[in-house]
Each structure stands twice: as structure tokens, then as C-alpha cells.
Design a protein around this nucleic acid. Structure first.
Lengths: 131, 131
DNA sequence: TCAGTTGTTCGTAAAGTACGAACTATGGAA
DNA sequence: TTCCATAGTTCGTACTTTACGAACAACTGA
């Protein structure tokens, strides 16, 4: 027995796709993770985000989220002892897709800010129209 | 029998989410559709895109893609006789998430341009590193 | 060697997606 | 009117993706 773990996959910058990036960031947990990592100045471990995100999340699920971010090219993960240090690859991506990540992060902040200030009275906000 | 069709759903601008927008645009067919619509100055029918996209695509699938774009708040669809006229809601979204769609469209163009100019020799481009 | 911690992998159940067939909606011709 | 053609939608089914618990791997320190 004792089957070794698969090596971590980091796509080269040239094979990163817009679709892949958008898909990776189209999940609430993953944008939250990525936004936090982009905000932090230094590398962070996976378990750090269990505190950042309110929802309690199984660690296997968290691990999959990190894998998705990694294989989309958004982050780089490196084993450091027993834990995993994660950093964003924002500089590389900025070079290839200028302005993409800043715009997404900004939109994410806008949305967070709105959620913090809920329930404006006397508006029709929040209703979908069927027409 | 004769069950009427469900009305089209257009979310109000306040309920559009970043995740929803990113998810809708994380599909190759849907970004292509959206990019083409954003490029065209006027409203376009669904079947227009059968020519834009190289792949032959079943119309039921195409219909689902339009529904996804519509319910993410990216486009507005209106029946005009036998066909459906689609327009982007980019002005609204620009107001709520400034710079988001332009950045995505720009990244999409970058990627298209690279695909048009393939195979640069003597590079290691395209290889994923396992480390 | 053993225990503790951090993260990954695997199996299965649940959710999402693609596509053909059947249908609705509309306009125009007979 | 009735019939036909065209543009999209809906539904059923097969396929793919995702979530999560249990078991495992990788590493540290006692």
C-alpha cells in the first residue's frame, strides 16, 4: 500500500484561460478565499480561511476549492512543513489579463459593502421582473 | 393541454451578483455570445450566434445559454414577432460594478488574439508544472 | 515509534449541464 | 380561418461536476 499523493498542478501563465479564472471565482467561497489572500500581504495556509468564512466548511471541500483555484492558475501552493502556504499569482495574471482581477475584486467589495448595509426602505430593490 | 410558456426572468439590477455574472461568463459559448452582443450596436436574435460561433450547437442548448445570461442579469430579451431580440445590460452593470465587464471583455479579446497567433517556437509555453 | 496536525484522495449522493423530441408562439400564405 | 414555416422553449434522460464524510498521506515533535 501507501500510495503517494499526486503532485500539485500549477498551469503555466500561458495556459491560464479567462473562462477558467471566471469559473474559479464564480463560487462564493472561492472569491472570498481569493479576496482574502489578495488582501493579505503574505502567504497564508488553507486553514486560515476557516476563520475568515462564516460558514463552517468541511476540510475536504476546502481542499477542493484550493485545488480549483490552483489549477485555474489563480494561486500558487507550496508545502511548508505540515501546512500549505498559498499566494496569489496576481502579478502574472495582471500581465496577461490587465485589469481583470482588480475589477473582479472591486466588484466583490462593492457587493460586500451592500450586504453590510441591507434593507433600504421604500425601494423595489430585490424583485425580479417577469416580462 | 396547451400549457403556456413561462415568462422570461430579468433580475433587478440590485439582485445581480458578481458570482452570477462570473459563472455566466465562465462558459466559452456564453462569453462568445456576450462579447458579440456587446460589440454589435443593436439588438440581436438568438439564431444570429449560430453563425458567429464555429461549433454547431443545438438550439435547445443555445436557448439554455441565453436563459443563463438573462437570469444572471447580463442581457435583456424581448419577443419581437417570431424572434427574440437580445441586448446587453452593460450600462446598468457598469453602474453597479464599474469596470467589471470591460475588463472581462478585454481579457477575452487578449485570449482570442493569442489563439489567432499560435505556436511560438522555442518557448516552454503551454506546459503545466508539477511542483 | 507514536501521537498530533494539516491537508489530500476516494466513494457516493446530490446538483448542474447537454441534447433530442415535443411543444408554444407568432407571422404569413392559401 | 386553417395550415405551414420559423424562432425559441420545455421536458426527459444521459452525462458531468460538486459536496462531504471516512480513510489516508505528509510532516513535526515528544
Amino acid at each position: 500500500m501507501l500510495v503517494p499523493m499526486k503532485p500539485l498542478i500549477h498551469p503555466s501563465i500561458d495556459t491560464i484561460t479567462v473562462e477558467g479564472v471566471l469559473h474559479a471565482l464564480s463560487d462564493p467561497v472561492r472569491v472570498a478565499i481569493y479576496a482574502d489572500m489578495a488582501g493579505a500581504g503574505c502567504a497564508q495556509t488553507c486553514s486560515t480561511f476557516l476563520q475568515v468564512i462564516d460558514r463552517s466548511i468541511p476540510k475536504s471541500t476546502l481542499s477542493q476549492h484550493f485545488r480549483t483555484l490552483r489549477e485555474a492558475g489563480l494561486i500558487r501552493s507550496e508545502r511548508q512543513g505540515v501546512e500549505m502556504l498559498n499566494t496569489t499569482r496576481c502579478a502574472e495574471i495582471e500581465q496577461r489579463f490587465p485589469g481583470l482581477l482588480p475589477a473582479i475584486m472591486n466588484a466583490h467589495r462593492v457587493q460586500l459593502a451592500e450586504k453590510a448595509r441591507p434593507a433600504r426602505r421604500k425601494t423595489t430593490a430585490g424583485k425580479a421582473r417577469a416580462d
